[in-house]
Design a protein around this nucleic acid. Structure first.
Lengths: 103, 103
DNA sequence: CCATTATATAGCATATATACTATGTACTAT
DNA sequence: ATAGTACATAGTATATATGCTATATAATGG
């Protein structure tokens, strides 16, 4: 059942997809954004405020996250609400939660 | 106990460190490398073979992983053995293990 | 229609990352 | 000393990512 070395066996496309998402989240501001969205949907302006980001920057990050299907958006009146749809995000958020034991 | 929005509260240095590590692992070959090391120490040549990488490329990746304290190395005769020391790696490896439910 | 609010995108200079090739160093065996 | 194996690093051209500023679009209120 447990193959000793499964690296070769990992589907390259899947590996690439995982790497792309991980790299995308490897940025402090995007990490803050997805973390802020962990509690549920938020509008762009709410994200800007919570994460202390300027509108344009925030929108650019959200745009990239959207392109990679990490988040989805929907209109709600004059607002646009975002939410996380990529399950890998949860694993990655663990990285900023483990309160680094060492010190 | 559960603060509504903890993003602002996240220590910026810790967030940066997490993002750096996540970004570093957001690369297919480095992801393969840390995955191959998940079973324990391996020499550079073993990693090259398992991950199907050229020596120079592999060494460069290992060098970056070492600089960021994601892995540690030790000499063993004419070989150099590497191992993972950064705990966040385990969370990230989860990303390539969850067998994407959707399809 | 006009102004305002909310969000998205374009254009661009600068910084980082990647991939390659070549070369350097350390250890072992002869 | 010499040669071979195992790693590490330098140098560099090319590609990507980032941060900014300005501008564009969409919905709402008056």
């Amino acid at each position: 059942m447990t193959k000793k070395r499964l690296v070769r066996g990992v589907d390259p496309a899947m590996l690439k997809r995982a790497a792309d998402i991980i790299k995308l989240l490897g940025h402090p501001e995007r990490l803050k954004i997805v973390e802020s969205l962990d509690g549920g949907e938020l509008s762009v302006s709410a994200i800007c405020e919570i994460c202390d980001l300027e509108q344009a920057i925030c929108s650019q990050h959200l745009s990239r996250l959207r392109r990679h299907k990490v988040v989805l958006s929907r209109k709600d009146g004059q607002h646009v609400l975002y939410r996380v749809v990529e399950p890998k995000v949860h694993h990655i958020l663990e990285c900023i939660r483990q309160c680094d034991v060492k010190r």
